[in-house]
Amino acid sequence: MKKVWITFAFLFSFQMMTQTGGVTFAQDTIDIKILSPDVVENYPGLEATVQAEITNLSNIELKNAMAYITMADIGKHMTVNLEDYGADVPILLDTLQPGQSVKVELPIRFVYTSKYKLYVTVSSDDDQQIHSSESIPVHILGNTKINPIFVQIVSIAMPIILLLLLFFVKRRKKQ
């Protein structure tokens, strides 16, 4: 009797495994590769184009697929608002035929100093699953030549100058 149970459990877990295997398979319906760049290490303001190749590995056509950049800030452990980076507009791929492969170019402008993981994501209407490429490391180095002391001096001096001017005018009016 025990054996039966064991066999059952075995079969059940096998069933589970094949199901998870199914999910894994679904992930493989789309393959995304970042062709370039491999790595980014530069100053803020850098404009780059991320080239990626998207291939439909499944045997069904994928409607309304779109590709876009995603970034995770691993310096601050935060997600990134891509609007600031001018990378919030996805590229629409229309329909991807089975086996079809397209290259996309996604523009981005790096503005904030930090370390990131950058990857390309594709989603389509017919697929619940979201597919992403492997990430590339992005390191935006601080380059600002702003001298904080100087900015502080200006910021404190300006209102004071005007306040003095106001007092001066007031006193002259009284005389």
Partner: peptide, 24 residues
């Protein structure tokens, strides 16, 4: 000028803003 000063100081003191590129 008070307003300008507040903003300018925030660029050099608030962390989020101080990470901005100089152009930004």
């Amino acid at each position: 000028t008070l307003l300008f000063s507040g903003l300018a100081l925030s660029f050099v003191s608030v962390k989020e803003l101080s990470l901005l590129a100089q152009v930004e």
